[in-house]
Nucleic acid binder design. Sequence first.
DNA 1: GTGAAAGCGCTAACAA
DNA 2: TTGTTAGCGCTTTCAC
Lengths: 350, 350
Amino acid sequence: MPRKATHKTAGKMPDIRSVAALAKVSIATVSRTINGSPLVSERLSKRVWQAIKQLNYFPNTHARTLVSGRSRLLGIIVENITNPFFPELVQSFEEIAVRHGYEILVSSSNSDPAVLTTCVRRMLERKVDGVAVMTFGEEETVLDQLVHRNVPIVLAEFRLEDPKASTILLDYSSGIHSAVRHLFELGHRSIAFLAGPHTLHSAITRENDFRAAMQAAGLTVQKKWVIECDHTLKGGMSGFAQLQKLATRPTAIVCSNDMTAIGVLRAAYMEGLRVPQDLSVVGLDDIDFAEFTLPPLTTIRLSRVDLARAAFEALRSHAEDPANPKIQREFLVSTSLVLRGSTAAPSTKP
Amino acid sequence: MPRKATHKTAGKMPDIRSVAALAKVSIATVSRTINGSPLVSERLSKRVWQAIKQLNYFPNTHARTLVSGRSRLLGIIVENITNPFFPELVQSFEEIAVRHGYEILVSSSNSDPAVLTTCVRRMLERKVDGVAVMTFGEEETVLDQLVHRNVPIVLAEFRLEDPKASTILLDYSSGIHSAVRHLFELGHRSIAFLAGPHTLHSAITRENDFRAAMQAAGLTVQKKWVIECDHTLKGGMSGFAQLQKLATRPTAIVCSNDMTAIGVLRAAYMEGLRVPQDLSVVGLDDIDFAEFTLPPLTTIRLSRVDLARAAFEALRSHAEDPANPKIQREFLVSTSLVLRGSTAAPSTKP
DNA sequence: GTGAAAGCGCTAACAA
DNA sequence: TTGTTAGCGCTTTCAC
């Protein structure tokens, strides 16, 4: 016997049947109309849309997902939404996804493998059509989960040999080379690097690219001038402090990310060092705030829009055309130098 | 005739039937076990869990939603995820929601009523169990949509006479009074206010509370010293610039939010004014970054954790206990002054 | 072109 | 206690 009084209080939501009834067609026709099937005659189509409007109907996505196997849900896992780099990424990703009829599920892993595992699990439960893992580290922990479930996945700077997995390679090299070149041309010969935590692939790549750029410029990298920080403002401050303790100090500092650079700006100010006269500082990322530091930060831009676009495309092509053997599985996002106020020729004084 | 080869390539995901088969019980028993029904004997329960583990099974949330009518999805709409205030709010909201077995859908309205409408629509399509509208303005546009669909909703500073709607009242008053009092005791008598855009309920409330606090301190509010800005860093800079053009200038500025205050800090620095010696500045929100400005910002803290908690509780109580007539429909989140380095006694020099 | 009907994977009423 | 079964709202054969 069918249940009678359900959880729904009174005004039941219109469903496909009500639309069909009002338009005097079958539910199949309603479904076809909504999904833009070319099989529906214009006459019926018109009646259906009219009924839909009249009832203010929209389809139940869960029912849809259940039968079609596709949820039109995309997951994006970031390291920490509170880190200014990520809201901008999420913003772009959402915008693109929504424009294509997808919804997104956002989660922060907080650099904790256990949390990451939970995030992935939750997304799997919601049957996402794909997951963008934008954590820049620790991806290894979750690969199995994802891959075995046959879910499309896109990683940043981590290549995974699975037909469902894509990689976004970030070409820091071009930006970092420009930055070092720029400092060199300004007259700097003593350049330090405040690196990111070595648990992050991106941090290691950035550091290596810095070394390469220095070599290309004919400059040597002083061991003591490369310091592992943690990509936070505080980390930048203490990195700067370590540099200050040294007998010989650099005239310019390239930082692995903008937050570190902002920390340097702050610490330098408190030490009475003037940027850029006494010290040049270069960041990396070009977060929105970089424009508003004092002085405005010269930095290497990593476009969040490009990154988001690549992530979305990678996921979408797999989700919508899984049979295609020639899907693009590698994307490249490049970087470029943005000149602002934190770099200048070194003072001769020292 | 049942369809055969489906979209799923090969290894079909385990479903409730596979678990039932492996555990040699009915699917009802599996369902009961998973949902913690007390009716299942320990013997069977054990067998079921064992099978679940063995198959690495988890339930399909869409199927669940379809039959139960509850999605365990909560929507949160913020004004702009790129605004530092909101990631912190979203972070807390997510954490609480996940802890209670909910997933969240995040969207930015970008202060655009049309976008807001779309956001709400999308959330409705996904059958969210509730929506937190944390836009602090323009809520009116979407009330009908939401309320007519009978979806629990929680608004900030906007009261709505509907049994499904809750309100979070923010008590800026206490924090703003403390701030004005603090400035007064430092010796300030000339205090300006850089307001937020009057399209925001919160901005208006904050301004009114400032006026009340001034009156309570026995101080008069100069007309020209209350300027409507836009809650952005740039807005704060230009607000400050306007103040500078005046013949008589304030010795202290209270800002409607931290971004405005940071703008003031920046503009003051560029003008050669020293904060706090020449000018005291107070912010509002206490975003993470406030601690790292130069000087660290004295500000009025509005706890995002408290706000998120209230929003979640409001939604959850409605979602899980809709029949209860005595549901709490109004929540209060208070503010408090955080003393840091941007306030001091005014210099006598003027 | 259109409709009838079979499920998608699950929950909950009812029977046993 | 446990099992059987009727749908939740939709898409998609298959028959007309």
